[in-house]
Computed example of a mutant assay.
Amino acid sequence: MILGSLVALVTPMNSDGSVDWAALKQLVEWHVAEGTHGIVAVGTTGESATLDVDEHLEVVRVVIEVAAGRLAVIAGTGANSTREAIELTQAAANLGADAVLLVTPYYNKPTQEGLYQHYKAIAEAVQIPQILYNVPGRTGVDMLNATVARLAGTPNIVGIKDATGDLVRGQELIGLVGDRMAVYSGDDATAIELILLGGKGNISVTANVAPGVMANACEAALAGHAERARELTESVAQLHQILFIESNPIPVKWALAEMGRMGLGIRLPLTVLSADAQPRVRAALSASGVL
């Protein structure tokens, strides 16, 4: 089981929108040095929606190569086509990913039965640990806890990223499936509390800019040291909010550029962080001690 702080890694890009491979490699090395426990490569924060298949898989390959077994690599392979999700998942398995993250099919809004059949088909088709991902605020579809419970125990399905931010619902989910699959937070603001309730880690946007703090906070929470975990996450609490001032990953990519970790490249239809928002993100970075 993969535990701890799992960064939802951005995909660095040049000003023309091409992938900045040198910056990507440097980010992976930084996360290794900072103690991040795992990297999600080309998840939704990694702009999976705008990378073509060849680029997508090359990013996964490079991250695996640079990580070299020093931390877990989870490949984002979700799609709103079950067939495409199976193909991407198989490709990630062939590349040597430790696991995959499968966002719920977006836009086509499947029923709960459709979600069940979608994930069951992927699990049956590809032999690799698979983490479900529910983020209704971005996809337009909400996978209910009852549906997750139906999938729990399915071979190859090992976890779920719950990005609802609803701790009552998260606690219920852990009670339903926690003995059969890992429950990860997908909401930085509530992640530590979910871990203290029995969650196994945090798939994090904030970890892109504060990897050491997030890794230490997750470790403390997993060890049951609630006061220490809350103290650590409080130090970056402003980031949990401000990094969503505009659509993710717009603010976090700008923040990393401000920190000198990469350039400002981002792909349309996303655009560089607006001038009005930049001072607020800069102030949060400074207040959190990462700038």
Results as ranks from 00 to 15, higher is better:
131 I>R: 00
57 L>M: 15
283 A>N: 09
270 L>H: 13
90 Q>H: 15
204 S>R: 07
243 L>T: 11
174 I>E: 02
38 G>Y: 00
220 A>F: 02
133 Y>Q: 03
35 G>A: 09
41 A>Q: 01
235 S>L: 08
63 V>K: 03
173 L>V: 10
124 E>C: 04
240 H>E: 13
31 H>S: 06
29 E>N: 14
116 Y>L: 05
149 A>Y: 01
142 D>P: 10
8 A>H: 00
213 V>T: 15
21 W>H: 13
121 A>S: 12
250 I>F: 06
199 G>T: 04
243 L>W: 05
51 L>Y: 07
281 V>E: 01
100 V>C: 08
240 H>A: 13
138 R>Y: 07
180 R>M: 10
215 A>Q: 06
16 D>W: 14
130 Q>C: 04
101 L>Q: 07
115 L>V: 05
261 R>L: 12
217 A>F: 02
290 V>Q: 07
81 S>P: 11
153 G>E: 09
148 V>D: 11
258 E>G: 05
218 C>R: 01
56 H>W: 14
109 K>G: 04
127 Q>D: 15
256 L>K: 12
72 A>T: 12
202 N>R: 00
44 T>S: 15
153 G>T: 05
79 A>S: 15
172 E>R: 14
285 L>I: 10
95 L>S: 08
49 A>C: 08
255 A>F: 04
12 P>Y: 06
197 L>Q: 03
290 V>A: 04
122 I>L: 07
236 V>G: 05
129 P>H: 08
94 N>H: 12
44 T>V: 12
112 Q>M: 13
83 R>V: 11
120 K>R: 14
129 P>M: 08
53 V>W: 09
241 Q>A: 13
61 R>K: 15
148 V>I: 15
193 E>Y: 09
245 I>G: 02
28 V>L: 11
69 G>V: 11
38 G>N: 01
132 L>A: 02
84 E>L: 09
112 Q>F: 14
227 E>C: 01
32 V>L: 12
284 A>R: 01
123 A>H: 11
171 Q>C: 07
211 P>M: 14
85 A>Y: 04
130 Q>G: 00
214 M>L: 09
136 P>I: 13
72 A>I: 03
230 R>C: 04
49 A>P: 06
138 R>G: 10
107 Y>A: 07
158 V>E: 06
45 T>I: 04
158 V>P: 00
219 E>P: 00
62 V>W: 03
211 P>H: 08
139 T>D: 02
273 L>W: 03
201 G>L: 01
103 V>A: 10
271 T>C: 05
174 I>K: 10
31 H>M: 10
202 N>E: 04
132 L>I: 02
114 G>I: 12
45 T>W: 00
155 P>F: 08
67 A>D: 03
101 L>C: 09
59 V>I: 07
255 A>S: 06
65 E>W: 07
60 V>N: 11
133 Y>E: 01
151 L>F: 05
252 V>Q: 01
189 A>K: 11
118 H>E: 05
162 D>H: 13
147 T>D: 08
236 V>Y: 07
196 L>E: 02
280 R>E: 12
260 G>D: 10
152 A>L: 11
202 N>L: 14
36 T>G: 03
144 L>S: 09
83 R>W: 05
103 V>Y: 05
93 A>C: 15
193 E>P: 03
211 P>E: 08
6 L>D: 00
